[in-house]
Amino acid sequence: MDKTISSLAGAVADIPDGASVMIGGFGGSGAPLELIHALIDQGARDLTVINNNAGNGHVGLAALIEQGRVRRLICSFPRSADPTVFNDFYKAGKIELEIVPQGTLAERIRAGGAGIPAFYTPTSYGTDLAEGKPVEEFEGHAYIQERWLKADYALVKAECADPHGNLTYRMAARNFNPIMAMAARRSIVQASRIVPLGGIDPEHVVTPGIFVDAVVEVTNPAQEEVLNREGAVYP
């Protein structure tokens, strides 16, 4: 078994128009910029994107939105240092937004990957974001029902991968990446290093390869924060 793919273009080639795509990252940390840019080059449009944020500056997710590829965004926090792209699209009615509390977003994704269709959480009970959702009392406290979140594809950034798709991450860049890898029908990973089988200590595997479908090596991946400080624009 070998899940490695030699090119970024090849890794994202089959993503169709209208697909739902989970994109890892919290702000720039853990954002798979090279895969996002390959998706821009590939041309798929009318996408539903699930990410914690809504992009920053004019690279990565912001660039995907700026190219008019995203129909609907599910996120917790669309503000950033430079949210111009998202704000302009949102105010012009050119993108739909579903706001989900951050922990609920994470748990909905985890549930999607774990085969749990719904769960109860205290988060957002009694607030505008709980409107229309079932409420139930457990041990004297009110909880609201939330549903799983799944996607057709996940774009994931890892530090190290082996040919079976076992993954490790780097520092806080882990964030949404492991749970998104679980929740997508097809998970596509960019890793800074691909090592032979046995190159990752089994005790250190964070995402077991069963959750991964394709791995492409991107050595020295770009950081959104650095690109934005340089005023970079993609493409």
Partner: peptide, 25 residues
């Protein structure tokens, strides 16, 4: 700064003995 090592405010932080990383769920 190492931009893989940030806090919830997206400000750079540092690792020290005892630091742990984990996923969002």
């Amino acid at each position: 700064e190492d931009w893989d090592c940030i806090n919830a405010g997206k400000k750079a932080i540092t690792v020290r003995p005892g630091t742990a990383f984990f996923h969002h769920a």
